[in-house]
């Protein structure tokens, strides 16, 4: 049990807190800033991010997904105390979920794109 021996450094040791409570507030500030950036980007939608694509997806969407994963990291590591658990437990939980989800998402998105192509190339008439 991880009683009173929390790891108090985030950002790879760049920011160390004096107590677990102040670490919680620090992580809350980090999560809030990320959410504010997401909402502002979602409302402004800067043109160079919406008009340029990487791997067939808009840069803006890559930014959103990246920021979401950063948020998920801090929620899991600091709010759910994953930082204080043993590597064995951490890997059993995180790697299992990450690999299965990445595989599922990859295969379903490729399939969805294929069906779009079939519709789009006129083999099936669906807008009449």
């Amino acid at each position: 049990m991880a009683h009173d021996n929390h790891k108090l450094a985030i950002f790879r040791g760049a920011w160390t807190f004096k107590s677990n409570q102040s670490k919680i507030w620090g992580v809350f500030i980090v999560l809030s800033i990320i959410t504010i950036i997401e909402v502002v980007l979602g409302i402004i939608r800067p043109e160079f991010l919406t008009d340029n694509t990487f791997l067939a997806m808009r840069l803006l969407n890559w930014v959103f997904i990246l920021l979401t994963i950063v948020k998920a990291y801090y929620i899991t590591w600091d709010f759910m105390h994953m930082r204080d658990e043993l590597p064995g437990l951490r890997r059993a939980v995180v790697w299992t979920a990450v690999f299965l989800i990445a595989y599922l998402v990859l295969i379903l998105l490729i399939e969805g794109d294929y069906i779009y192509e079939v519709y789009n190339n006129g083999y099936i008439k669906f807008d009449f």
Binding site: A97, L100, I101, L104, V105, L108, L109, E111, G112, D113, I115, Y116, Y119
Partner: peptide, 13 residues
Amino acid sequence: SGFLAAYGFSRFK
């Protein structure tokens, strides 16, 4: 993630 991936599938479609 199954639900969200299904959402992504339909959206790509």
